[in-house]
Amino acid sequence: MEVKYLSSPIEIQGFSVVTNNHAEFSSQGKIPALWQRFDNAIPVNYKGGERVYGVYFNYESDHTGDFSVLAGFDGSSVPESLAIERITIPSGKYLVFSKQGDMPQIAIDAWSDVWSYFVQEDTQRRAEYERAFTVDFEHYVNGNHIDVYIAIK
């Protein structure tokens, strides 16, 4: 993991749902269906440089509360018939967790690293950085590489 400063905001468009971690770790999870909807509806031009993002925002509180997730991309080739939502990933300081390998396991592993880092039971081992719970995002660099950006204070 490393600290990165995102100097320019990133405009993302796609579809979103409201969920929470309790639901996602049960049979009530909404994120898999969200990604399936995105994959079936949005023609991402990877060869043209467009990239896919998962954006986490509107945090109710911390990792225990509700939040919104947008499955989206940074391109503009969207069918006019779709009701697309837009969000801006703000510039700022992020702690980045990177994984390479096979999907979806690398996304699961990256988020496991996030949880291991920030949710530490041992108070003697406090995390160096504190989550801001503003906007976090997954950047799918390619089919075998993910960077998870966690906003930090």
Rank of each mutant, 00 (worst) to 15 (best):
M1H: 11
E2D: 13
S8Y: 06
S8N: 14
S8H: 13
E11C: 02
Q13Y: 07
Q13T: 13
V17D: 11
V18A: 09
V18L: 08
T19Y: 03
N21L: 12
H22C: 02
I31F: 06
I31V: 15
A33M: 03
W35G: 00
Q36K: 15
R37F: 00
D39R: 15
A41I: 09
Y46E: 07
K47T: 11
G48F: 02
G49K: 08
G49V: 10
E50K: 10
Y53V: 00
G54H: 12
G54Q: 04
F57S: 10
F57I: 13
T64N: 14
T64A: 11
G65K: 01
G65Q: 06
S68D: 12
L70F: 06
L70D: 00
S77W: 10
P79K: 12
L82G: 04
A83I: 10
E85M: 00
E85N: 11
R86C: 01
T88C: 11
I89H: 05
P90Q: 02
S91T: 05
S91L: 07
G92H: 04
Y94S: 02
L95F: 09
L95P: 05
S98D: 00
K99M: 02
G101S: 04
G101W: 04
M103L: 11
Q105G: 01
Q105V: 03
Q105Y: 08
D109N: 07
A110I: 00
S112K: 15
V114G: 11
Y117F: 13
V119Y: 06
V119P: 01
D122H: 10
T123Q: 13
Q124I: 02
R125G: 00
Y129G: 01
Y129I: 01
E130P: 00
R131A: 14
F133A: 06
F133P: 02
T134F: 05
V135P: 03
V135K: 08
D136I: 07
Y140L: 09
N144H: 15
D147Q: 12
D147T: 06
D147F: 00
V148Q: 02
V148E: 01
I152G: 01
